[in-house]
Amino acid sequence: MNNFRRAVRGGAALGAVVALAFMAGCGGPPKAQVSGTVTFDGAPVENGIIQFYPAGGAGQTAGGGIENGKYQLETSTGEMTVTINASKVVGKRAMYDTPDSPKVDVLKELIPADYNTTSTLKVTLKPGVNENVDFNLKSSKK
């Protein structure tokens, strides 16, 4: 019985070492650190959201905030479809249909649908650092 216990403990220790070595050697699919600027009609987008979707459907979808025209995030590599949203407050409305209802902001999307709901933006990201992945958006395509 003692030999059996030693064998089990030795096997468990060996299994743990093999699992740790496997995990250390397998970091998963390659990642891309991506950063850049987003402008709309020549001005930096003050506050918004940028999202990267794998064009072929395989890979990690990632998104992040845009602040003062700059963004930075980590996502999958390869060809990505990009969506960009930014809104501004255009008024207030009651949250509920009661006289003492709190007010909430009414927002209007600033960025045309060509850059978000029907995005035509594409970019190919390589493993590692991808800097200056900039998007210069325009209110109308001329």
Results as ranks from 00 to 15, higher is better:
Arg93Leu: 13
Ala113Gly: 14
Pro102Gln: 06
Met95Asn: 15
Gly59Asp: 01
Val90Met: 10
Val90Pro: 13
Arg93Gly: 05
Phe40Leu: 04
Lys92Tyr: 12
Gly42Val: 00
Lys92Met: 15
Ser76His: 00
Val82Ala: 01
Thr81Val: 11
Gln60Arg: 13
Phe40Met: 10
Ala43Ser: 15
Val106Gly: 09
Lys92Asp: 11
Asp105Asn: 08
Gly91Phe: 07
Ile111Trp: 08
Thr83Val: 12
Gln60Asn: 09
Glu67Cys: 07
Asn47Arg: 14
Thr61Gln: 12
Ile66Ser: 05
Ser87Tyr: 08
Gly91Met: 10
Leu110Arg: 08
Ile111Gln: 13
Gln51Met: 12
Val90Leu: 12
Lys88Gln: 03
Glu109Cys: 08
Gly69Asn: 00
Ala62Phe: 02
Thr98Ser: 14
Gly65Ala: 06
Ile50Ser: 03
Val89Asp: 08
Asn68Ala: 05
Val82Pro: 10
Asp105Val: 00
Thr98Trp: 04
Pro44Glu: 01
Val90Phe: 03
Lys92Pro: 07
Glu109Trp: 07
Gly78Lys: 11
Ser101Gly: 06
Gly63Phe: 05
Lys92Ile: 09
Lys108Ser: 15
Ile84His: 02
Gly65Asn: 11
Leu73Tyr: 06
Asp100Gly: 13
Glu109Ile: 08
Val89Glu: 01
Gln51Gly: 07
Ile49Thr: 11
Asp41Ser: 10
Ala86Ser: 13
Pro112Val: 08
Thr77Lys: 14
Asn47Cys: 12
Gly56Pro: 12
Phe40Gln: 10
Thr39Trp: 01
Asp41Phe: 08
Pro112His: 04
Thr61Phe: 08
Glu46Ile: 02
Asn68His: 10
Ile66Tyr: 04
Ile50His: 06
Asp100Phe: 07
Gly57His: 14
Ala43Gln: 14
Gly48Tyr: 03
Gln60Ser: 08
Asp97His: 10
Gly56Asp: 12
Thr81Gln: 11
Ser87Met: 13
Ala86Met: 05
Glu79Trp: 03
Ala94Glu: 15
Gly69Val: 02
Thr81Glu: 13
Pro102Thr: 11
Gly64Val: 06
Phe52Glu: 12
Pro112Ser: 05
Met95Thr: 14
Asp97Met: 09
Gln60Lys: 05
Gly48Ser: 01
Gly42Met: 02
Asp114Pro: 15
Ala113Pro: 15
